[in-house]
Computed example of a mutant assay.
Amino acid sequence: MNSAATNADPYERIFALNNAIRYVAIYRAGKLQSRQREGLAGASSGESDRYEELLVNPTLLTLARQRGNIDCGGAEFVIVGYGNFLQLVVALPDGHVSVCFDRAADPLDHVEAIRKAFAP
């Protein structure tokens, strides 16, 4: 990551990680904000993305956390493989960050860097 991206907002830091990142949504303290790269093929609709971030992704994280807390050491993230892209959803103390990747990318390569974008 270059030094200009180091001081940038979390969206810029995350988009700077890989050109395969299509979309970033941050849902914290009940507030949702998102950004998308321009000119994407196969992108989902903004309204669909909104409901995914407000309903689906928090539910997936809750289910994974509850299962993980039984005897797996917790759960920190979920990856969903959609037809056109991969969605990485990383738990934050007060919400989540959702990062959409082109199918050819490996979201696991970026989990720690995405977490660092939200470190104090």
Results as ranks from 00 to 15, higher is better:
E38L: 12
G68T: 06
A43G: 10
E12Q: 12
R13Y: 04
E76P: 06
I21E: 00
A16S: 11
I114Q: 02
L88T: 00
E52T: 03
L92E: 10
R103M: 14
S44E: 15
G83H: 09
G95C: 09
A64I: 10
P93C: 04
G83P: 03
E76L: 12
P10I: 01
S45H: 14
Y51F: 14
N57Q: 10
E52M: 10
I70E: 08
R22A: 00
H110Q: 03
R67A: 14
I79R: 01
K31P: 03
V111G: 01
E76V: 07
G81V: 08
A113W: 02
G42Y: 15
A91D: 13
M1S: 06
A41Y: 11
A4N: 06
E112K: 12
S3W: 12
S45N: 15
A91C: 14
E53A: 14
L40E: 00
Y23M: 10
A41T: 08
E112S: 13
L63E: 07
F15P: 00
G30L: 11
I21W: 00
F118V: 04
P107D: 10
I14C: 12
D71L: 15
A64K: 03
A113K: 07
V111N: 01
V111K: 01
D106M: 11
E52D: 09
A20L: 07
L32C: 03
P10G: 02
C72Q: 04
M1R: 13
L17M: 04
A91K: 15
V97M: 12
V97W: 10
T59V: 14
L32T: 01
G95R: 12
G81L: 11
Q87V: 02
Q87S: 13
E47F: 14
G83V: 11
A29Y: 10
I14A: 06
Q33S: 15
S48T: 13
A4T: 04
G74W: 13
V56P: 01
T6M: 15
A8G: 09
D94E: 12
V56K: 15
G42M: 11
I70W: 10
R103Q: 10
S45T: 15
A43N: 15
P107F: 03
N18K: 13
K31F: 06
A64V: 09
F101A: 00
K31Y: 03
D49V: 05
L92Y: 08
G42C: 08
I21L: 02
V97F: 06
R28N: 09
I79S: 02
Q33C: 10
I26W: 06
Q33M: 12
N84G: 04
H110R: 09
S45P: 11
L108G: 09
A91V: 07
P120G: 07
I26M: 06
P93A: 06
Y82Q: 02
Y11T: 01
V56I: 07
Q66T: 08
G73C: 08
E112P: 05
S48F: 15
N84P: 08
G46W: 11
E12L: 05
N84C: 08
L86D: 03
E76Y: 07
F15A: 04
V97E: 09
I21A: 00
G39P: 01
G39S: 07
R115I: 00
I14N: 01
A75N: 09
E47V: 12
Q87G: 00
H110S: 05
A20E: 05
A119E: 11
V24C: 07
A75K: 15
L55I: 04
A43H: 15
